[in-house]
Amino acid sequence: MSKPDKKVTIKDVAQLAGVSKGTVDRVIHNRGEVSAESFRKVQEVVRKIDYKPNAYASLLASRRHYRITCLMPDFEGGDFWEIAHRGVLRAYEECRDFNIGVQVVRYDQFRVESFRQACSDTLADLPDAVLIVPMFREAATEFVTELAGKKVPFVFIESKLPGTPYLAYYGMPVFESGYLGASLLLRNSAPAEVACFRFHRSGDALSNTASIRQDGFLHFIKQEKRACRLWVDYLYPSDCAQNTEILDRFFEAHPDIRHIIIFNSRAYIVAEYLQAHGMGDRILLGFDPLERNVKCMKSGYLDYIIAQKCETQAYRGVRALCNLFVFKTTPASADNYMSMDILTAENVNYYIDLPNE
């Protein structure tokens, strides 16, 4: 068996070019003054032997420290964004040895002013790259436009803003996920009415993700020529008493509605109401296998969950930015879609999100 080829080092390049290792380093990394003749010799050798510097060693030697800011919604234990945060931490653990720091700037996903403040703080600190959840479409567009003007690369997760120069998007196809939700609820039935519960946000701002999913849901109804009306009402993210009053009024006004959809991860709010009121004859669909959602599914009050591998998308988003700095590489595709996984009571126990896939 022949011996493997010896790896070419910066010392070999220096010897072949007849210059010092320091001169080779300055030419390769474009640092410091080098004579025209030395520059020509080094470049000629590099081309001839196809020398490629070690990306890790080069980054460490440069002593350049890169900062990535992750703009994400705040969370409590068991929330959707706690799961995504695990993906950010996993990516950071893999990249921190290469002079890359990751910080998370949180905002209240139900207050557009909180999101704007987080954007303002990020711009004032001006990191080298940003991972962002564009919860509020208008404010997020303004923010990434400023990032682009400052040549700061950014990655979207969960939803994206078409027409902006994002480096990459990691998440499910959002419009199609709303379409899929409609198909699951309506394909084998023909209800005249469907209930949709969304959540109040400040300043009449709407969730980018939920709005796009609703568009996909309505597109299915239009495409299938269904005579089906979507009734939309609004709940509060953490006011149980007020939500009970809203749901009481809604079902008193619409006693015949049997099909319900929630376009975010809080389907458990409605499922727990249905369970408390013995309304097990409703068909409810929501998103994301949070612990409370799964519990409701097992008890029979949440029929479908569409899952989107939230830990994986956060992990891959941060890794894409790390690879940009370490390897100087960009993702092969700007749009990197996660699978839309349909969970039921029969398979929910076996669902696994693998962030290193």
Rank of each mutant, 00 (worst) to 15 (best):
Y51G: 04
K48E: 13
F287C: 06
F175C: 08
V34N: 02
Y301N: 09
N323D: 15
P127M: 07
D239T: 08
D281C: 03
M135A: 10
G203E: 07
F251P: 15
A129V: 12
A334P: 07
C240K: 15
V232L: 12
S35V: 09
R258K: 15
M279W: 02
I212H: 00
D5E: 12
P237D: 15
R111H: 08
E252T: 15
E138H: 03
M1G: 15
S202P: 07
S299V: 08
P173K: 12
Y66A: 04
R116S: 15
P162Q: 05
D353S: 11
S207G: 13
F98A: 02
K225S: 15
S299C: 04
V144S: 05
P53H: 13
G87W: 02
E37T: 14
T330N: 00
L123S: 03
R226H: 11
I246A: 02
Y56R: 11
D303M: 01
L218P: 06
R258T: 14
S62R: 01
R63V: 07
N293W: 12
K41G: 09
V144R: 06
C228G: 11
L126A: 05
E311C: 06
W231M: 11
A195Y: 12
I342F: 00
V45S: 01
A332L: 04
R137L: 08
N336E: 03
